[in-house]
Amino acid sequence: MNSKLTPHSLRHTHISLLAEAGVALEQNMVSLSHSDDQITKNVYLHVTKEMKKEASQKFLQLMRSL
């Protein structure tokens, strides 16, 4: 882990955790004062391990339901 925490790195972490918790993109945009969703998506939203795990579980459920 990078030992140099900055306000900007905490901002990235905050938004990624909100997205992981299911907070909508539009709400994250408001938190960041962004008017363009591409900035929010491309710069701030990161796929976390938990999000990857959840996607895998959803896919498994989908396949089992076929």
Rank of each mutant, 00 (worst) to 15 (best):
G22S: 06
K4Y: 04
L25V: 01
L17G: 00
K53A: 11
E54H: 08
G22T: 03
Q27K: 15
L17C: 06
L17R: 07
F59W: 08
M51G: 00
I15F: 03
S31E: 13
S65Y: 07
R11V: 00
V23D: 12
M1H: 06
Q38P: 00
K58R: 14
L60H: 03
S65F: 06
S65I: 09
H12R: 06
S35T: 15
D36Q: 06
N42W: 08
L32C: 04
A21G: 10
L18C: 10
H8S: 07
L25K: 07
V47L: 15
L10G: 01
V43N: 07
A55M: 04
G22V: 02
H34A: 03
V30T: 11
L45E: 11
M63H: 01
E54A: 13
D37N: 14
P7D: 12
D36W: 07
K49P: 02
R11E: 09
D36F: 03
K58I: 14
M29L: 14
L18H: 09
K41T: 11
K52I: 10
D36I: 00
Q38Y: 06
L62Q: 09
L45Q: 13
S65D: 14
T40Q: 12
S16T: 03
L62V: 03
Q61A: 04
L18M: 13
T48W: 13
T13P: 00
V47M: 15
S56D: 06
M63C: 03
S35V: 11
R64H: 05
S3A: 04
A19T: 03
Q38T: 13
V43K: 12
S56C: 02
D36H: 08
G22M: 04
H8A: 11
G22R: 06
Q38V: 10
E50N: 14
L66G: 07
K4A: 06
N28Y: 08
L32P: 05
H34P: 02
A55P: 02
L45N: 09
L17D: 01
M51T: 00
E20S: 04
H46T: 15
K52L: 15
K49R: 09
L18N: 08
H34R: 01
S31I: 15
L25T: 08
L25C: 02
L25W: 03
H46Q: 15
V23G: 11
V30E: 01
L18Q: 05
V43H: 09
S31K: 00
H8Y: 13
K52E: 15
L10P: 01
P7Y: 11
S31R: 11
I39L: 14
L25N: 02
Q27G: 00
A21E: 12
E54Y: 08
S9M: 13
L66Y: 05
S3I: 10
Y44H: 08
L45F: 06
H8W: 11
A19R: 10
V23W: 12
